Every structure is written in C-alpha cells, then in structure tokens.
Amino acid sequence: MSIIAESKSSSLIEAWRGIQNAKPGIRIREAAKDLGVSEAELLATKTGEQVVRLQGPWPELLTRFKTLGKVMSLTRNGTCILEHKGPFQQIDVMGEGARAMATVIGPIETRVFFSGWKFAFAVTEEKSDRILKSIQVFDGAGDAVTKIYLQEKSDVAAYESLVQDFRAADQNPDLDVTPYASEAQNGPEDTEAFLKEWSELKDTHDFFGLLRRHNVHRYHALELAEGTFTYRVNPKTTPKRILDEASATKLPIMIFAGNRGNLQIHQGKVRTIRVLERGHTGPEQWLNILDPDFNMHMRMDLVHTAWVVRKPTTEGDVTSIELFDVEKNMIAQFFGLRKPGIPEKTEWRAVVKSLSAL
C-alpha cells in the first residue's frame, strides 16, 4: 500500500468513527453519503480486517452462489429494497463482454447485468450477538448492486472456499470509483410512430427494445403515452393500497426493483404490511412487507410519481403500476402475477381500476 493510499484510507476510517459516535447505529450507506464517498469506498477501508476483495470472472462468481445453500439475497436502489431467503436454484448465463447477463430462477429470482458489476467483497461483521458473513457486489460508482448474506443453514465451508477461490491479488483499501454520466436519450424523433409501435407490442419484454429503438427515457415514454397507454395515480397512497388489497384478498402479485447491475423479482402472495418511521437526519416513512422469506422496504417519502401503464400482448393487455423518484428514476413496478401465455387476472385489473387517475 502506498503512503498516499494509507493516508486516505486512514482519514476515511477516522471520519467514519466520528459519524458512528455522533449517530450510533447509522448504516454504512448513510455514513458514506454523509462523508461524500461511495459505500464501496467506505467498506474497502476495512480490507485486511473484516473485508476481502474479490475478483471475477463475475459469471463464475454468480454461479458459485448455488453452492451456498439457503441465503438472503438483497437488491436495492435509492428508495426500495427487496430481500428474499432461499437457495440460488437455477442460474443461466448468456452473452459475453458488456452484453453478458444472467437469469436466476427459483426462490431467489433476479436478472443480472454484469456490465454493472465492478467490485466485490467478502464481508464479516458483528451485529448485536451475531456474526454476519456476506458477499457484496458494487458497480463502478461504488453503489451496491446486490448483497448475499449467509443464514443459519447456509454452507459456511462452501462460502470459505468461494472466498479463497475468488480472492483478488490486489487487497488495496482504496478504490477508483467513477460516477455514471447520465445517458442522453432525446427521442423519439417521431412520437406518432413510437406510439403506433407501442400499440403493436406482442410481449411486455418487447417494451425495452421499443425504448432503445426510439432512444427515449422510460419516464418520458410514459409522459408521451399519457391518456393513451398511461395515466398518473396518487404516489403517496397507491403502493400501500395495492399491497393492502393483495394481502387481504390473497392475490399473488409481482414486484420488480433493482439497479443497473441487478433486478430482483418477487412472485407470489404478500401477507404482513406495515408502515414505520425512522431516520437519523429526519423522519423517513417506510412501507414494509414483513413475511418469513420475503421482505420489502420502500421509502414512501421519496416516491414522487406513480403511473398506471398498459402494454398490449398476444394474451391481452398487461397492466403495471410504476413508481419513480423526483429525478425520474424507476423505484419499483407492480404487476398481477401471470405466466407466459396466460391472460392477466381480472382481480388485478379490478385493483388497478379502483385507483383514481390524477
């Protein structure tokens, strides 16, 4: 380690201690924000103690998650966190280089985009009377992509073997992170053609291609289609209302939430819905799903807009509720649970229809 690197990491450690003393119990992500650094940079300062830097190939690392047994998979963005407990059951990797991705199917379901995987760490930390072991992956800006926590019945020997096999030669506590520049999406050049193609969609997955072809940001697409395929609903009441209705009627739903490197998906019923307030710097209103093997935590105070979105398919229209923050970043999507080839449930459509347009 260079003298400069040692000085930088030492000063960051000292600053972190100061924040922890001033705000006992503060989470690392919040501390990093207060210090003006990324979560990955702050975590890396513990390299050599409780943290081991890992290296790729990332598809091989992901595939090894299958050996860990039952774990907890956590994926988050700035507003929403999804947590699932279970094994990594089926992993399929496709593509190479910047286009490489993977699907994970089973109790833990994700869509993985390896272009967003830049740093990874094996982390051992003490929480109350427990020792937590995890694999934590971050993107090039140092933001968390996914975290995999061992559980009581996880295979600890498989975890230790994984850490040994993917241990990076470079254990420097300093990281070179690069903030992402916003992508210019100035389309569509022809709004009428864009909306016509929307009307001709055959599958919900074709929507991503539609946005790419017309170089249009997802939020702007919803604005262009307002009154035709989309309309706004109350952002403060809609998420809880959907979950309360799904819980009361035992209606299976789908929840999508993620970031540039990982999209985690919940499929099934939800039961225990709670709203809680907490925060170190001010009141934070959290909407929670607290079920045995699935948790969701969403900052309701950061939900800025909510949209009903209709997409045509060969099985009829598919309707979603899409939530965005004030910077027009996607927070989460809600669907009625459906399988390919099966029309959308009328019960889900009734829930959506009950929401008043703004």
Rank of each mutant, 00 (worst) to 15 (best):
F256D: 07
A102G: 03
Y149L: 15
V352Q: 08
T313M: 07
E6I: 05
V352D: 05
S247E: 04
N329G: 04
T319I: 15
I255C: 06
R99G: 01
Q264L: 05
N259Q: 03
L222F: 14
G86D: 01
F166N: 00
G116D: 02
G18I: 05
E226V: 05
L54V: 03
G69T: 14
R64E: 13
E327S: 08
Q151M: 15
E125D: 10
F256H: 12
G341Q: 12
A44M: 01
E109I: 02
T191F: 03
S115A: 15
M94K: 10
E223F: 01
R64D: 09
T230V: 13
S38W: 05
T204W: 06
D317P: 08
R349M: 14
G48V: 07
F166T: 02
L150N: 12
Y159R: 09
D170V: 05
I108A: 07
T346N: 14
A15L: 07
F229N: 04
N186G: 03
G140E: 10
S73V: 02
P57D: 00
K46H: 14
Y219A: 10
G97R: 00
T63G: 02
K118E: 09
D34H: 12
E39Q: 06
Q285L: 14
A44W: 01
A350D: 15
R338S: 03
R338E: 00
D174M: 12
S9C: 09
E197Y: 01
E197T: 04
I26Y: 10
F166M: 02
S320T: 08
R349V: 06
M254C: 10
L224I: 12
L243D: 09
T47K: 03
R29N: 04
P235S: 12
L54D: 06
E245P: 01
L61A: 08
I265N: 04
Q89W: 00
S199L: 06
F324V: 02
A221N: 11
D293M: 05
E14C: 07
G142D: 07
